[in-house]
């Protein structure tokens, strides 16, 4: 069995795709592009796909990850191409590497987010960020299936900065001019702190209230470097392993040893 790890995106209007929606679309794309999928055992066999840490509905992403198991080896590059062609524009399959290491999910410990705040001026954003970062804890509320939940949004935030997002020629388009961009690095924790929780925190600490909903995009996901506050590419170890030992018949067999990445979603039950 060959395992392939994919990076995919949620762009533009398809950022409104929920994770369940994505799953169904992806599994149909697997059929349309005739990928030799491995199936789970049982009465209703499911293709073996492990999803990791999906971005919330409504947020864009450049860095979503999943892993699939195949019954016959395929070239990752051409597999990526045909899968991408079978997916709707916006849900783009942008990278594929053969899994040579275990624990993809273990290498997804933090995310880099961009929050575009139209109508918010840079000084105002900077002030709010400073207030947020200065706080020891920032209590926020989120409505979950089990009712209103209160938790700290501060501890998980590794970095937060405000940049100027106003574009050239903005002066000609009144009302659109002011735009701050927040760059956020947040540690994956339980409960998960999402970008909208940080926005709630900014409202709580500094009364920051964007006039239009923030456009939120996950730029990267990976292993957090605690010193620099950056994340590293989670597919890099697999890519390096492939370069060190290009695929051979024996190599493919060896690669099947590890367990699939631990994702948020189980592979269909047996």
């Amino acid at each position: 069995m060959q395992r392939i790890r994919l990076r995919y995106t949620k762009r533009g209007r398809l950022r409104f795709t929920s994770h369940r929606d994505f799953q169904r679309a992806f599994e149909r794309a697997l059929r349309r592009s005739e990928v030799p999928m491995a199936y789970s055992a049982g009465f209703t066999p499911h293709p073996k796909v492990s999803y990791a840490n999906a971005a919330p509905t409504g947020t864009g992403s450049e860095a979503e990850f999943l892993e699939i198991a195949l019954t016959e080896p395929r070239d990752p590059a051409s597999l990526r191409e045909s899968l991408d062609a079978s997916m709707p524009d916006g849900l783009d399959i942008v990278e594929a590497v053969e899994a040579r290491t275990s624990g993809l999910a273990d290498r997804l410990t933090a995310s880099v987010w961009e929050l575009r705040l139209d109508g918010v001026g840079l000084p105002e954003a900077r002030q709010a960020v400073a207030a947020f970062l200065a706080a020891e804890t920032v209590e926020v509320e989120r409505r979950t299936k089990n009712g209103l939940r209160t938790f700290d949004a501060r501890a998980a935030v590794v970095r937060l900065e405000a940049l100027d997002g106003a574009f050239e020629g903005a002066a000609d388009r009144p009302g659109l001019g002011a735009c701050a961009i927040l760059r956020l690095v947040v540690r994956h924790s339980t409960p998960a702190v999402r970008p909208d929780d940080v926005l709630s925190g900014l409202r709580a600490t500094a009364d920051l209230a964007p006039p239009v909903p923030a456009a939120v995009t996950r730029l990267a996901q990976g292993l957090l470097n605690e010193e620099t506050g950056t994340v590293t590419d989670p597919l890099a170890p697999d890519r390096e392993a492939v370069t060190a030992a290009p695929p051979t018949a024996a190599g493919l067999t060896a690669a099947t040893g590890g367990s699939p990445a631990r994702g948020g979603v189980p592979e269909g039950s047996a």
Binding site: R13, F16, T17, T57, G58, P88, G90, P213
Partner: peptide, 22 residues
């Protein structure tokens, strides 16, 4: 769509209003 898009974060199952079906 540009005007609709601003409303979508506030509604249930926004994907149903987005189109782009295969």
């Amino acid at each position: 769509f540009p005007r609709l898009e601003a409303l979508l974060p506030h509604v249930q199952k926004p994907i149903q209003y987005v189109g782009g079906e295969l």
